[in-house]
Structure formats: structure tokens, C-alpha cells
């Protein structure tokens, strides 16, 4: 449900950059969403259209770049790929994992005019 607020966060960043970088319309937004970020992609897409309505990004296209989850396995002393926060190391089965990547929610790039 917080995807609505996340989209409001996106809109605020767009409005700030519209002023500082001098654009009036946003046509496409590229978001980088990690698999461990807790963001539901479908809810994000739904919320995006609703929140952007009537704004400088009304009707803009949303492109989502998924980033796989990365964790450091302490027993193995190496980086492994995980898709959930509660997953075990795919190699040794330990839960002693430290998330090192794939938890980001970033605005990467915009197509503007």
C-alpha cells in the first residue's frame, strides 16, 4: 500500500528537477527497484498513473529496471544471489547473510521535454 507514497516521492523529485533542470513535461521515468526493496511492482505501476495525473508527468510511461538481491554469506565469505530476505545461502544453507544490494529504490533517468 505504501507504493502510493513512493509514487508521491517520485513526483516530488520530478518537480524539483523540473525547476533545476528546466523541463516542463516528463514522458518516461526509469526506476531501478531492487528485488529486496519490498516494493510490489504492479501496485507501483497502478499508483504511478494515479499519482501523476494532472502533474507534469501525466500520462508518462513507467519503465522499471529490476535489480537482483545480493547478500554476503558470512560462512562462505562470498557474495551470493537471493530473491527474499529470509532465504538461505544457495551454497551452504546458512542464514548468516548480510544484504549488500538489491534493496534500492532509485529514479535513474527521465525522458523530458
Amino acid at each position: 500500500m505504501h507504493e502510493m507514497s513512493l509514487n508521491e516521492g517520485v513526483l516530488q523529485v520530478l518537480q524539483d528537477h523540473a525547476k533545476s533542470q528546466g523541463f516542463e513535461r516528463v514522458k518516461t521515468v526509469w526506476l531501478e527497484i531492487g528485488e529486496l526493496s519490498g516494493v510490489e511492482i504492479e501496485a507501483m505501476r497502478f499508483g504511478f498513473d494515479v499519482v501523476m495525473k494532472g502533474s507534469l508527468a501525466d500520462g508518462a510511461k513507467l519503465e522499471i529496471i529490476r535489480v537482483p538481491g545480493q547478500a554476503w554469506c558470512m560462512p562462505c565469505e562470498k557474495s551470493v544471489q537471493v530473491t527474499q530476505l529470509f532465504e538461505a545461502c544457495p551454497d551452504c544453507g546458512s542464514y548468516q547473510l548480510q544484504v549488500t544490494g538489491g534493496d534500492q529504490m532509485q529514479i535513474k533517468e527521465l525522458e523530458v521535454e
Binding site: V13, F23, Q104, M105, K108
Partner: peptide
């Protein structure tokens, strides 16, 4: 095209 690309690299939760 009048379109141009803008690199942002800013967190959604930055505000």
C-alpha cells in the same frame, strides 16, 4: 525530437 534524457540517480525516498 524535443525530448531529451535527464540522468537523476536519486532515491525515491530522498525527500
Amino acid at each position: 525530437s524535443q525530448s531529451r534524457m535527464v540522468q537523476i540517480e536519486e532515491g525515491i525516498l530522498s525527500k
